[in-house]
Design a protein around this nucleic acid. Sequence first.
DNA 1: GTTTATCCATACGCCGCCGTATTGACAGAA
DNA 2: TTCTGTCAATACGGCGGCGTATGGATAAAC
Lengths: 219, 219
Amino acid sequence: MPKSQKNALSAQDWAEAALDAIGRRGVEGVAVEPLARELGVTKGSFYWHFTNRDALLTAALARWEARETDEVLARVQQETDPRARIQRLVTEVNTSRRASRIYTALSSAGKPSFVREYVARVSRRRLQFLIDCYAALGLAPERARQWALQTYSVFLGSLQIRRDLPDEWPAAEDPAFADYVRFLMVSLLPPEAGADDHDSGDTVDTPADTARIVAQSRH
Amino acid sequence: MPKSQKNALSAQDWAEAALDAIGRRGVEGVAVEPLARELGVTKGSFYWHFTNRDALLTAALARWEARETDEVLARVQQETDPRARIQRLVTEVNTSRRASRIYTALSSAGKPSFVREYVARVSRRRLQFLIDCYAALGLAPERARQWALQTYSVFLGSLQIRRDLPDEWPAAEDPAFADYVRFLMVSLLPPEAGADDHDSGDTVDTPADTARIVAQSRH
DNA sequence: GTTTATCCATACGCCGCCGTATTGACAGAA
DNA sequence: TTCTGTCAATACGGCGGCGTATGGATAAAC
């Protein structure tokens, strides 16, 4: 049972290439023969690893789901303060352009219907994570849910704006970016931990954490 | 010069059908022959009205751009109070499911590259409209821009959530929907007209206007 | 009633992609 | 060396969509 020839491709290599193609050309752009050309092989290789194109998409989606739930949330959960977690999640918008494009492509894909299930699961876990963060701040369940929906909307909308109007969005190295993140945090964090309403009081932001987390945003 | 036969199709009919197909199947789903089947004709009709598929997409995009800028903004501009305009724009999310799907499909389309130009123009005009609204409230230009970006992010993100997680989103007839809109308005409206910062003070919402505008949201 | 312009049907060739079948190269086990 | 399992190349048939060519069909103009 030789496990690896010289430059043998694995199913994971194909799945990763498919994810790349999703990010660059959308789900419809995941075609077997062009993908094989990009990998320097022919279809003969593909149909040894997978039964058909849907199997490749399923593998790519499974890979994506695992990455976007366990890994990302685990990274954010390194923060202990719920406020820091929320802010970290917002700044994560600017971490990976590739991940953003993959998400928007998947979210708007219609053709293989099972794509929507993966997107729904990932979105649900992200939203639930935010709900838990706001609940940890002492908000009532419905209140936490409203805050989480608002924050997740800002998160997704930011992806969209960076895609549609890239020049209208402050670059990560621009000081206006840090300004904008601080501005957002005022709206996205309830004014007082344990309070149930948010239109009174101040002393909201923690500038030290803000600067630290913003500095972590790469690219 | 007979201007209309019995049941003759016009170029506008084709463009409208193309917009419908964009909303239902995405830009890639705009295919000449399936569209002709849906319209009860054959390709022979299409290639009389248009030179090729790109010309159809261009016509559909021009139609969409005119509708999403002049018409929508004119409708919102019926409101005189800038706060009411902003709230009206947010509630417009729930007005037309069709328009939402068309927008998200166009925004994530990659293949005909000129699609991005139309999307960019529409997004830019929407964002500028919001910036003007916040500037009309007396905010400094950079501040108005931050508020507008935040509000437009919420707007776009709401579209996305309603698409990915429709059951997590309150229905328009659900009282939770009006609650959520009121909640959003607290974050999306600066606390005091003429103020330059927004983390102090209260007396934000105007419940009468809120109820009136929410009631106008149809479907 | 012929003519003309408008609108559509039919038939064709082309290309890109899917999936299958078959064969081949190559590495380790025997 | 021979055998066997792993990975890939080649060749083939099929399908769906694009664009063209050509020939009706119909209604108005004259």
